[in-house]
Measured scan of single mutants.
Amino acid sequence: MADQLTEEQIAEFKEAFSLFDKDGDGTITTKELGTVMRSLGQNPTEAELQDMINEVDADGNGTIDFPEFLTMMARKMKDTDSEEEIREAFRVFDKDGNGYISAAELRHVMTNLGEKLTDEEVDEMIREADIDGDGQVNYEEFVQMMTAK
């Protein structure tokens, strides 16, 4: 299944994987998964984290390695993001709930994920998604960005 991913997608997933893999040992533990999910405003229980890991832990060693992570991402993409997942993601970014993602809100979430971005990089990300040019990202623009192939 992971063989249907483009090189660009694999590179993006590698970057995402390293955000989860806090200690850089090449595997994601339940603790690391929990840290990232909490930084995104989720509050999973230990059991939920274990279930999430077990779902993709092909070799049964209790952690997720990069090939397992790729399989999980490929699977998720095949079920292409349901509207509800996209709306949920939008809410994570839209901290003040005004229906727009500002540069400050984007920077806040990315920083929580451990991504240190310059102001230019954040502005560039907003510009790429900002179709109507108002300097922020509304829900429609967010959907376009998330579903762009």
Rank of each mutant, 00 (worst) to 15 (best):
G99T: 05
M77K: 07
T45D: 00
D123Q: 02
D3G: 11
Q136V: 05
H108F: 14
D134N: 13
S18N: 15
K14F: 00
E115W: 05
K78T: 09
D119N: 11
I86E: 05
E141D: 10
N112C: 03
E84F: 08
M125Q: 05
A148E: 00
A58N: 03
M77A: 15
D119L: 08
Q42P: 08
R107L: 13
R87V: 15
A74Q: 05
T80P: 12
Q4E: 00
T71Y: 02
Q42M: 02
K14W: 08
G133V: 09
G24W: 09
K14A: 04
D59T: 15
K31S: 06
K22R: 13
V143L: 11
L70M: 11
S82W: 07
D132N: 09
D51G: 11
D96G: 12
T111M: 03
E141S: 06
G97R: 14
E32F: 07
E12R: 03
A148F: 15
E68R: 00
G114K: 03
F142R: 06
A2E: 14
M52F: 01
Q50L: 14
L113I: 10
T147V: 15
R107S: 03
K76C: 15
L19E: 07
I53H: 15
M37I: 12
E115L: 00
D96K: 15
K116I: 13
K22I: 11
Y100W: 02
K95M: 03
R107C: 10
V92F: 13
S102L: 08
S18L: 13
E88H: 05
K95H: 14
L70N: 15
D51T: 06
S18R: 14
E105N: 08
Q144R: 12
T45C: 03
D79N: 10
G62V: 09
A89G: 00
A103Q: 06
T35Q: 10
T45W: 07
T6V: 15
G26W: 10
E68V: 05
A74V: 11
L40M: 14
G99C: 11
L70S: 13
D134M: 09
F142P: 06
M52A: 00
N61Y: 08
F90E: 12
F17P: 00
E7V: 10
F17D: 05
E85Y: 10
N61E: 05
T71E: 03
E68A: 14
E105Q: 00
E46S: 03
D130L: 04
V122Q: 00
E124W: 09
D134L: 04
T80A: 13
T45R: 11
M77T: 11
S18H: 04
